[in-house]
Simulated scan of single mutants.
Amino acid sequence: MASSSSLLRMEQIPGKGRGIVAAKSLKAGEIILTESPLILYSASPLFAPSSSPFTNCDHCFRILPSHTNIFPCPSCSHHTFCSQRCLSLARNSSHSTWVCKALIFLLQHPNSTTLFQQHPPERQVQARFIVASHNLFLRSPSELHTLLSLHGTPDSAIFDAAKFLHSLISPLFPQQCQLSVDITAQLLAKDRLNSFCLMDPYSPEGPQRSIKAYAIYPKATFFNHDCVPNACRFDYVDTGDEHNTDMVIRLIEDVPAGKEICISYFRIGRDYCTRKRILMEDYGFTCGCDTCVIEAKGEDNGEKNSDLPHVRFLRKHVCERKNCAGTMAPLPPKDDVPSNVLECNFCGNFKEIL
């Protein structure tokens, strides 16, 4: 696969800010970016029970099968790993001595539960992120600066959260690596706009997939949103590959040189009002893509007009499996020959097109 730097370039997109465009003509199915997470942390609240029916490794986030041995952290009883290798890697990265001590304090301090009960449940997950951010600063200050360079500005609610989390967490780390209230707020704002979800496995009979972890991929954050995207994200978190938490961006259709490449920030195929609400509540903008313009004017005739490009797109690229509705993209071309097999980025289903 060619380097992403030879396939993509960043440009200012009118009305959007920075975005990613094709540096040359690209084919449907091409993998245009594979990226490891800059920061990765559990989506499980500190105290409230997780919504996930699965237990995951606290480093790679693969499901821990019930019949296999698990490897607990030797310093605490709260974190387990799928292998000795994951435990060793975690002790030198995601679950360092400082992280372990901080999480033990938050989980076992007699006042922690009471303090967190005075805040919304999301504060417990944000605490995990701020602990992970301190750890990132300890390991690599330059990577923390990369995280801080991403888009996102704190509002008053984020500053309130930052004051609370800073008072609890910063004193648990070495003084030279303690993050200020302002930086804590900046980090929370970056996390809100730039984090991606790693999900539990799909099941056609349910329950609805839960979020097992959050991750930030700095390059991928520059893909703008479109309700009818020309690229989509794949992850293979429950595979055996050592890079199982990497994100893969694959093209859905051919993209000419100079055209912007967009992903959807949620599963495609949702109605206009739902999309508009999610984008404003979660990302703070109103989408001006061609599909939204048409639907806002009521020109789609209730999405019954099969001649409209977005209607044809949805019929071809929305997975039809029960409880799925993921995005289907072609497999990578072989020897420049396009594939006629589509893969769903949500359930992993394959479909051959004639």
Score class of each variant (00 low, 15 high):
residue 1 M to Y: 14
residue 10 M to S: 10
residue 25 S to V: 00
residue 27 K to T: 12
residue 45 P to Y: 03
residue 45 P to L: 03
residue 49 P to Y: 08
residue 50 S to L: 03
residue 56 N to L: 07
residue 58 D to F: 02
residue 60 C to Q: 04
residue 62 R to Y: 02
residue 70 I to F: 09
residue 79 H to A: 12
residue 86 C to Y: 12
residue 87 L to T: 01
residue 93 S to N: 12
residue 100 C to P: 08
residue 114 T to Q: 10
residue 115 L to Y: 03
residue 127 A to S: 04
residue 130 I to F: 04
residue 134 H to N: 10
residue 137 F to Y: 15
residue 141 P to Y: 10
residue 146 T to Y: 04
residue 153 T to F: 04
residue 157 A to P: 01
residue 169 I to D: 03
residue 171 P to R: 08
residue 171 P to D: 06
residue 176 Q to T: 07
residue 178 Q to T: 03
residue 183 I to C: 07
residue 187 L to E: 10
residue 189 A to R: 07
residue 198 L to K: 05
residue 200 D to H: 01
residue 207 P to V: 06
residue 210 S to Q: 15
residue 211 I to C: 15
residue 212 K to E: 10
residue 213 A to K: 08
residue 216 I to E: 05
residue 225 H to D: 11
residue 227 C to Q: 09
residue 227 C to M: 05
residue 229 P to T: 01
residue 233 R to W: 00
residue 233 R to M: 07
residue 238 D to N: 15
residue 244 N to H: 09
residue 248 V to M: 09
residue 255 V to F: 12
residue 256 P to G: 00
residue 258 G to K: 11
residue 259 K to A: 06
residue 264 S to G: 11
residue 265 Y to K: 03
residue 266 F to P: 00
residue 269 G to V: 04
residue 273 C to T: 11
residue 278 I to T: 05
residue 281 E to S: 06
residue 282 D to G: 00
residue 285 F to W: 13
residue 285 F to K: 09
residue 297 K to D: 09
residue 302 G to Y: 13
residue 318 V to M: 13
residue 330 P to R: 07
residue 349 N to K: 10
residue 351 K to L: 12
residue 351 K to F: 09
residue 353 I to M: 15
residue 354 L to P: 00
